[in-house]
Amino acid sequence: MSSALRRSYSGGKLKPKVIETLLWYLSAALCCAAAVRLGAAGLAGRYPALTLLLLLHAARSFLLIYYQSNYSTYAWVYVFTTPLMHAMHVWAGLEIYRHVFEAYSGLSVLGRRSLALAAAAGTILAFGYVHAGSRVAGEPFPVLRFVLLFEASIACVVLFFLVTLIGFMLWFPVPLRRNVMGYAAGLCVSLAMVCAGVAMRVFAGHETRSLASTVIVAASAVVYGYWAVTFGQAGERTLSEGALPRSPDDQARLLNQLKALNAMVQSARNS
């Protein structure tokens, strides 16, 4: 399977480098579009981590595109901006958590201890990933591998945290806004593809670099495109509005029903 995949990918018509570059440009453009969409919908203040993540990602992409022919500068820009991007991913994960449980801020089970526990479990998973990755022999660029594994470990921790959060919401459903759901789904896919792309590059050898990079930018393009299309004021409504029987009319109707029931019971006793 893998050899067929490699042959079709590296041979002839597909021109992987061109596809990768086009997807990269598309991803950067869609990232800008998503940031503009957030700002235009007046949601930038509501989702500061996402807005900043999109802006920084777009700026980083344009900087890397600008320096792509100068390998040394390109590498330094990549290495120095990686921690910043992943700090943004952590902030984005915490922002989703805050939006999901904004009405439950005082609930003890959702406190710092639970957060730390979920992060610790994710860290153990990430440690396993990094440990396995660092033992692969024959890596020609050890520094790059270190950066990639750092990237994947943060992605792994945030992804695990978000999946745990979703698991909790399946058990304890809370009203959720469409934008928050889309935000979480997009971030999960993006992080999962970072983990997968880095795994390809680290475990399957450096010759898969182009394929790994294409997978990551293609996923990013899909996610940014999805956010650019779906984010808006309409998405600030919860997925299901629901209706509460607590208006004065509803209360009067309930009381009338009770009175009717009492009258029925009374007449049954008298007869």
């Binding site: 399977m1 893998s2 050899s3 995949l5 490699r6 999962a192 593809m193 997968a196 795994a199 390809m200 475990f203 399957a204 050898g205 898969t208 997978v215």
Partner: peptide, 12 residues
């Protein structure tokens, strides 16, 4: 199964 195929299957 090669590592690339394994990673592809895990990703899917």
């Amino acid at each position: 199964m090669s590592s690339l195929a394994l990673i592809a299957a895990t990703t899917v």
